[in-house]
């Protein structure tokens, strides 16, 4: 059934077609608002239109309640963009996840990104109960079984001709510990059935290269499309914070220094001038990173995370020579 409904593709999503055709893919990210204001989603979507192949919608990112990733994804479809709906294991059990996925498919969503989810202690409801009925690995398996076997997690058949056909994504953090195990954990996600991977933000390219070398040696890049995660730094403070405070993140000193140097000579009172100098530097670094990452064997694209700074995506993809985005027919 998968074959006839999706023309030989697993899902027929734009992202899948771009990757299957061998193009260097570009995905973006959009953080839904802390309100029910669809206009905010539309406004942010406008900044990404025509610049990326698909857009991730975060699912209560950092455990802060926001407009649902599925609803935001549907607004994106209405605006002519393609969503990658993020789904975490923190907030839903296997019943809710599968039901929401059926709903998402019914509304035209084709790409899903499976995540464990940030712990609720980081967010705005730290007293909440978390779920973690399944983990991200098992979530991938669940989506694959729905698609390829037309079966729910319990083994029961999905009614009708076929299960929902998703292009299945997951995250990978090349910088988490234990470092030697990270390529193997990626291998586990691929064995579970993942089609594409978006990595955690890369701010340490030598370490990412080392990781990718192991990934390529294991042949994993041939089994799933790996998109390197990048994001423009906004200030030297942000660079320092990410280097020193964010668990599972490595930021090379070089970037912190370059962000600091960007405002050298601009007095502290000139806030606007500093802000602009920082942002210009952040975008410049991001473009260079994309160019470097693109040269690494096994990398199939980039995932640009410019949350709350969606305007930055245009100069980045332009500067990195990634426009125009390819059009691949075949849906």
């Amino acid at each position: 059934m998968t074959d006839t409904s999706t023309n030989g593709y697993k899902s027929g999503s734009n992202l899948e077609r771009v990757l299957a055709a061998g193009h260097f893919a570009v995905t973006g990210e959009l953080g839904p608002p802390k309100s029910h204001d669809a206009e905010v989603v539309r406004r942010k979507a406008e900044f990404l239109k025509g610049l990326v192949d698909a857009v991730n919608l975060t699912d209560n990112q950092t455990a802060i309640v926001r407009l649902s990733s599925i609803a935001a994804g549907v607004i994106l479809i209405q605006e002519g963009l393609e969503p990658v709906v993020q789904m975490t294991c923190r907030d839903r059990n296997r019943l809710a996840i599968q039901s929401d996925l059926l709903g998402a498919a019914a509304l035209g969503v084709k790409n899903i990104l499976c995540l464990s989810g940030d712990h609720q202690s980081f967010g705005n409801h730290p007293t909440a109960k978390n779920v973690h009925d399944v983990d991200s690995m098992q979530l991938i398996q669940m989506l694959k079984d729905l698609r390829d076997e037309s079966k729910f997690q319990c083994g029961e058949e999905v009614e009708g001709d076929s299960g929902p056909c998703f292009f299945i994504g997951a995250a990978a953090n090349p910088f988490g510990d234990p470092f030697e195990f990270r390529p193997f954990r990626l291998g586990k996600k691929i064995a579970a059935g993942v089609d594409f991977i978006q990595t955690q933000l890369i701010y340490d390219i030598p370490r990412f290269k080392e990781y990718m070398k192991r990934v390529v040696d294991m042949g994993l890049h041939e089994k799933a499309h790996i998109l390197g995660g990048v994001g423009p730094l906004k200030s030297s403070g942000m660079a320092r914070y990410m280097r020193d405070q964010v668990p599972g993140m490595i930021v090379a000193d070089e970037y912190v220094d370059r962000m600091t140097a960007a405002v050298a000579g601009i007095p502290k009172e000139e806030k606007k001038a500093r802000r602009e100098a920082w942002r210009a530097q952040g975008i410049k670094i991001c473009i260079e990173q994309i160019q470097e990452i693109r040269e690494i064997e096994g990398v199939a694209g980039v995932h640009i995370m410019a949350i709350e700074w969606e305007e930055a995506v245009k100069p980045i993809v332009e500067g990195a020579g990634l426009l125009p985005r390819p059009r691949v027919d075949g849906e």
Binding site: S121, F122, D135, S136, Q138, D177, K188, P247, M249
Partner: peptide, 18 residues
Amino acid sequence: KQLLNGPCGGSQDGKCEI
């Protein structure tokens, strides 16, 4: 996070992200 297939991406220097 009660992961059965860990560690998650937040594991660093042997410590839990939370």
